[in-house]
């Protein structure tokens, strides 16, 4: 398959647009000096990835991504940014001083992964593009063959929920409570 054949397929134009959006938004996520901008750029990257999933005819996963990630995870991040007073607005020191080794590591990793992917698959065509995966099949698979991992994952989610609450709530020992009550009483008098 030549490059002109590849580019003549309109699906590949859609891929180029969505892939470019994903990479551009991802670049903003890791380089923006403003945390809120980074979190909002993550929305863009995830939305473009959902578009790529639609292109790969994985509709259910695409909408799960939109619901779970854009709908809740990013909101959670925005709350986290507000509560931890992360540097909202431009701040000089959001990056380490030594970011060049990180850049070298990332570029080297990309080189290795991309060349291995090309060596392994070359021009293997995708099958069943545009046909769609029925949610029927996915549901039967999820609650049939994969029911045990499904239950394990739901248990993990419950444990994470409880762990999150226990970690984030303010713990006060009875003695401390008494002390604050006494202070309040003194203040009132």
């Amino acid at each position: 398959m030549t490059l002109s054949e590849w580019i003549s397929n309109p699906q590949n134009w859609a891929f180029l647009v969505l892939g470019g959006l994903t990479l551009g938004a991802g670049f903003v996520v890791v380089t923006s000096r403003n945390v809120v901008h980074a979190a909002l750029a993550l929305v863009g990257a995830l939305a473009a990835t959902a578009g790529l999933f639609l292109l790969l005819s994985a509709e259910f996963v695409a909408w799960v991504l939109v619901l779970v990630y854009i709908g809740s995870v990013v909101i959670l991040f925005l709350f986290g940014i507000m509560i931890t007073r992360a540097p909202i607005g431009r701040e000089a020191a959001v990056d380490h001083v030594r970011r060049w080794p990180a850049l070298i590591a990332a570029v080297a990793l990309f080189g290795v992964l991309a060349s291995v992917a090309w060596a392994a698959f070359e021009t293997t065509q995708l099958v069943g593009v545009g046909e769609g995966t029925s949610t029927d099949l996915l549901g039967e698979s999820l609650l049939g063959r994969y029911v045990l991992p499904f239950e394990a994952v739901s248990f993990l989610l419950l444990a994470a929920l409880i762990g999150g609450i226990t970690l984030a709530r303010k713990d006060t020992s009875p003695a401390e409570e008494e002390a604050t009550a006494r202070d309040r009483g003194l203040a009132a008098r």
Partner: peptide, 14 residues
């Protein structure tokens, strides 16, 4: 792979 490399860069540099 490019997206993953961007993530690795962010993880190390932030």
């Amino acid at each position: 792979a490019a997206l993953f490399a961007l993530g690795v860069f962010g993880l190390l540099a932030r």
